[in-house]
């Protein structure tokens, strides 16, 4: 399942914390035309490189959906930064 939400938190121990909820589910429909073009290009070029179209599509889907659950956090005396993909 592709990630639908990205939560970004930037702040520090003595600073104001800014928290952003980025609705990725609104971004994906905007990316559809570009994804369609890339998919067509990939499907056309795949046989030329000896790979199947199904492999290309499956790999592309896994690359996009694999981000769900990614969590990156850095907490230092100077500041804190956190990104989560849900």
């Amino acid at each position: 399942m592709i990630p639908c939400l990205a939560i970004v938190r930037v702040g520090g121990h003595h600073r104001r914390t800014i928290r952003l909820w980025l609705p990725l589910f609104l971004l994906w429909p905007l990316m559809l035309p570009f994804a369609a073009v890339l998919a067509v290009v990939g499907l056309v070029l795949a046989p030329a490189y000896g790979v199947t179209a199904a492999d290309v599509l499956r790999t592309a889907w896994q690359l996009v959906s694999g981000w769900r659950g990614m969590h990156f956090e850095v907490d230092s005396p100077e500041g804190a930064f956190q990104v989560r993909f849900i």
Binding site: S65, G66, W67, M70
Partner: peptide, 14 residues
């Protein structure tokens, strides 16, 4: 300083 990273293994497979 603390770093906490969680990487889905699905992404590594991809």
């Amino acid at each position: 300083t603390k770093v906490n990273i969680r990487v889905p293994l699905q992404l590594l497979r991809a």
